[in-house]
């Protein structure tokens, strides 16, 4: 795994960790991230705008994002340097929430089947498919600690050479490989992904946006019965504009696949509070196009 990609990725990780050459600080509440303009501004128009104009930020070199969700900010910064988030224990603070899969083998098979389904879902929307394809290009940089998984996958593929998912695996190995580690049976993180999606949209980080969407779609399939679902739906519908179909389509799709959701009390409450969600569900139920 000593590939050039890994070399770059680990170099970036080190840069974030020790803040060397940092020329910009992102502040969020009590947290300070020493980041690099070259890396950050080239990924996000917002940061670029902050640094190139003669506002306070460019004079002080500090961007205060306290108004944003702290968790989302952390994931965003992490993404800038690791091209991923929530893929391994985060900092000490968030480790209590993120737990690693107890045994890779137990989760493997079901996960894969679902992966295939999800990918089909993506194909329904060409825009999303292209976004997924764009993000797939970065996926080779999966960190080295996934090595055992790769090994096991190859055993699996030897077992089921003719299944459609196998073909999929061959066509797009990185997508599957990347979906693998983040599968988390215990914690849905639905709200987290929705927030990351929102912050990516707010600051115009398209790669992070599609990544968050993918993770969200993956998790909602696993955890549609989770109690997080209503809040995640509200979050998704309120942090982006109606024309942003990324999470909306995933949510509507979930409601369609699982009509029983509408019967849940907490879901009902959320639908009541979120008119645009309610409207889209109504359109769906009436057999109309959800969004035109």
């Amino acid at each position: 795994m000593d590939s050039p990609n890994v070399e770059l990725l680990s170099a970036l990780a080190t840069l974030l960790q020790n803040g060397k050459y940092s020329d910009l600080t992102i502040v969020c509440g009590m947290k300070r991230y020493s980041v690099h303009r070259a890396l950050v501004c080239s990924r996000s128009e917002f940061f670029d705008g902050a640094c190139r104009n003669s506002f306070k930020e460019s004079e002080t070199g500090v961007i205060d994002l306290t108004e944003d969700d702290a968790e989302a900010v952390e994931h965003m910064v992490h993404y800038f340097y690791h091209l991923d988030y929530l893929n391994k224990p985060l900092s000490r603070r968030s480790s209590q929430r993120s737990s690693r899969p107890t045994s890779p083998t137990t989760s493997r098979l079901p996960t894969r089947r679902r992966t295939k389904k999800l990918n089909l879902l993506m194909v329904e929307d060409p825009l999303l498919a292209t976004m997924a394809a764009a993000s797939a290009a970065r996926d080779p940089m999966t960190p080295p600690d996934e090595q055992p998984n790769h090994y096991l996958e190859s055993i699996d593929s030897a077992k089921f050479p003719d299944t459609p998912m196998e073909q999929e695996f061959e066509e797009d190995p990185f997508e599957t490989a990347q979906a693998e580690p983040e599968s988390n049976v215990e914690k849905p993180y639905l709200v987290t992904h929705a927030k990351v999606y929102a912050i990516a949209e707010k600051y115009g980080i398209s790669g992070l946006k599609s990544l968050a969407r993918k993770k969200f779609a993956h998790q909602i399939e696993l955890h549609f019965s989770s109690s997080e679902l209503p809040e995640a739906c509200q979050e998704a519908y309120e942090t982006t504009v109606d024309s942003d179909r990324g999470l909306r389509d995933v949510i509507i799709q979930t409601f369609r696949a699982h009509p029983e959701l509408s019967l849940r009390k907490d879901v009902e409450l959320a639908v009541r509070e979120t008119p645009s969600l309610a409207f889209e569900l109504f359109r769906m139920a009436s057999g109309l196009p959800v969004f035109s």
Binding site: F46, G49, A50, N53, S54, F55, K56, E57, S58, E59, I63, D64, L65, E67, K202, T239, T240, V241
Partner: peptide
């Protein structure tokens, strides 16, 4: 006199306005 202004704040205001249609 832009150097007294917070870009983040202005951006956030505009963002919110747009988000609220």
């Amino acid at each position: 006199n832009a150097s007294r202004l917070s870009y983040e704040e202005l951006y956030r205001h505009a963002y919110k306005v747009v988000l609220k249609k």
